[in-house]
């Protein structure tokens, strides 16, 4: 079960990866394959982190975080998904971890919109000071934005952990669904990976290169 030290570490890691999505330093710690792997390592189940991280990464590859687009936050979601996958006690918990991750990614993305609106309100209130070039106001806005995002990330991670802790005993009864959930997760990940890659490639040479990559991957998979 979840030890207090593990809970604290997961909360800290979930907050770090949540802030990394947009605010600071965008070092790709937020990517599911990174966030989940480290979460798995912290829990003592690196393999679960790698498995869940790989599948959630396919979903993240279907997202292009450009400008004002709304997108899911896969960082804290990957941390909680890994924790649930590791502690559920199911024989085949990968699918469950992925589904929890997808749900929380959606919630985290919604919470990000709230932070952005808050930042907008603060910037509107500070418009005269900003126009006059007040460096203290600029620094304050940046600090507040960072703090709000840290709080958002902490809350998403904490709520996710709390729900996991409350639901884990009930989930045991559904353990037989593990295999089916894994297949659904793999199918969803494949759809996300295929559509994401096709959209990025567009037409022409990149589309051809995508086809070549799939053939090469198929050969590698057959040989491995």
């Amino acid at each position: 079960m979840l030890e207090p030290v593990v809970v604290g570490t997961l909360l800290l890691w979930g907050t770090i990866v949540g802030v990394d999505l947009v605010s600071f330093p965008q070092a790709m710690l937020n990517r599911p394959i990174v966030a989940a792997s480290v979460a798995g390592f912290l829990i003592g189940d690196l393999e679960a982190g790698l498995r869940i991280g790989m599948l959630l990464e396919c979903f993240a590859l279907d997202v292009i975080p450009i400008g004002a687009t709304r997108y899911p936050d896969y960082g804290p979601a990957s941390v909680i998904g890994t924790a649930v996958g590791s502690f559920a006690g199911w024989q085949d918990p990968t699918g469950l971890g992925v589904m929890v991750g997808l749900l929380l990614a959606f919630a985290g993305g919604r919470a990000m919109e709230f932070v952005r609106r808050l930042n907008g309100r603060l910037a509107r209130d500070a418009a005269p000071a900003l126009a006059s070039g007040d460096p203290a106001v600029l620094a304050r806005l940046q600090r507040t934005g960072l703090a709000a995002d840290a709080l958002r990330s902490l809350l998403v991670t904490a709520v996710g952990l709390m729900l996991a802790w409350l639901l884990l005993p009930w989930l045991g009864a559904l353990g037989d669904a593990g295999r089916a959930l894994r297949l659904v997760a793999v199918a969803g990940a494949l759809v996300a990976a295929i559509t994401g890659a096709a959209r990025r490639a567009g037409g022409g040479a990149p589309r051809m290169l995508l086809g070549l990559g799939i053939v090469a991957g198929g050969i590698l998979a057959w040989l491995a």
């Binding site: 990976a193 890659a197 995508l210 990559g213 590698l220």
Partner: peptide
């Protein structure tokens, strides 16, 4: 990205 994206799928 196109090549490696394709490679990862299978």
């Amino acid at each position: 990205a196109a090549v490696l994206g394709g490679l990862a799928i299978p």
